[in-house]
């Protein structure tokens, strides 16, 4: 098969909605883009454990603590599913960690914001996981098999994440005056960064067209963002909280909510590394990796000892 017909075969698989698997021929750019997208998605899950990990020891009840622990545990698992998928494309785990720790690889900008109150746990579960779900459901049909299958697993586990967040917001919003204020404040702080999670506007997103053609992106940034706004405004009504956007208005003609301007300067700044917690998040990850080295080494040494003992026992038998 010539390279030319490899490309044709690949294109016909994409067109016929047939999955590309690890051993299939694929264009270099497709492989590179997927490695970047999947590994950054994985990094986001792992770094994403930190803002919520911050409140595990201060959860207001045992039930809330157990639930938050389970959620954060899930995020670690999601990171694993995605690292595994990325590794099928020919990059090693160590290389991906190196890219994260050196700042070469990015993770979702939303995790560079601080969790200041317990209500932030509610806002994050409701809005951040909500936005993530909106992005991840279409990816269950992504063209690359391992990525799509990882997404299916993730989506099954993600819906409790959003529900626990919404439940926290509901309890607070229907609680005392102080609780309601705390919920509104968290909503105010997490709303706009959540909208930014969907990425820059389509007009400023040059990679979108190719990603859509390759079926590693099903809906555009603006399309997903609009869906999210429409759905979340209705949920906010149930909470009885004010939308942190004075320009939000139902547009009868479009059949969607019009919403206010997003501060893209803030987004660019946070992506560049100047968000409130960028430095802290990266330091924490680097520290965990460095301080965990003895565990990695010890596990290997222990495995070797166990193996040697087994061999001795087999010889003696």
């Amino acid at each position: 098969m010539t390279v030319h017909s490899f490309q044709e075969h690949f294109d016909s698989l994409i067109d016929r909605e047939i999955s590309i698997e690890p051993k299939d021929w694929m264009p270099d750019d497709y492989r590179k883009t997927l490695i970047r997208q999947i590994s950054q998605h994985a990094h986001s899950e792992i770094v994403g454990m930190l803002p919520e990990g911050n409140w595990i020891t201060r959860a207001p009840s045992l039930r809330r603590k157990a639930v938050l622990l389970a959620k954060v545990q899930d995020e670690a698992g999601h990171g694993l599913y995605l690292y595994s998928a990325a590794e099928t494309l020919g990059i090693s785990r160590d290389e991906m960690y190196d890219q994260l720790h050196s700042g070469k690889a990015k993770y979702s900008s939303i995790f560079n914001y601080p969790t200041l109150t317990w209500a932030d746990m509610g806002a994050i579960g409701w809005l951040v996981d909500g936005a993530a779900i909106m992005n991840q459901v279409p990816l269950c049909r992504a063209s690359y098999g391992p990525y799509a299958r990882a997404m299916v697993r993730v989506c099954k586990e993600e819906s409790f994440h959003q529900r626990q967040g919404f439940e926290i917001m509901l309890t607070l919003a229907k609680g005392t005056e102080i609780q309601k204020k705390m919920a509104q404040d968290a909503f105010n702080r997490w709303w706009w960064p959540s909208l930014m999670m969907f990425g820059p506007p389509d007009a400023e997103s040059p990679n979108t067209a190719q990603s859509v053609r390759w079926r590693i992106k099903r809906l555009t940034n603006d399309e997903l963002r609009q869906k999210f706004v429409d759905v979340t405004v209705e949920q906010a009504k149930v909470l009885g909280l004010d939308m942190p956007d004075k320009d939000l208005k139902w547009n009868e003609e479009r059949g969607h909510y019009d919403f206010g301007a997003i501060d893209w300067e803030e987004f660019k700044n946070v992506v560049k590394g100047n968000g409130p917690c960028n430095k802290q998040r990266l330091e924490t990850r680097k520290q965990a990796w460095e301080e965990g080295k003895w565990v990695r080494d010890a596990a290997m040494a222990h495995a070797e000892k166990r193996n040697a003992r087994k061999k001795e026992a087999a010889k003696a038998a």
């Binding site: 694993l80 599913y81 595994s84 998928a85 590794e87 099928t88 785990r93 299958r149 990882a150 697993r153 596990a299 290997m300 222990h302 495995a303 166990r306 193996n307």
Partner: peptide, 9 residues
């Protein structure tokens, strides 16, 4: 899926 581990156990 896959994972990294020191040995089978």
């Amino acid at each position: 899926g896959s994972l990294h581990a020191a040995d089978a156990q």
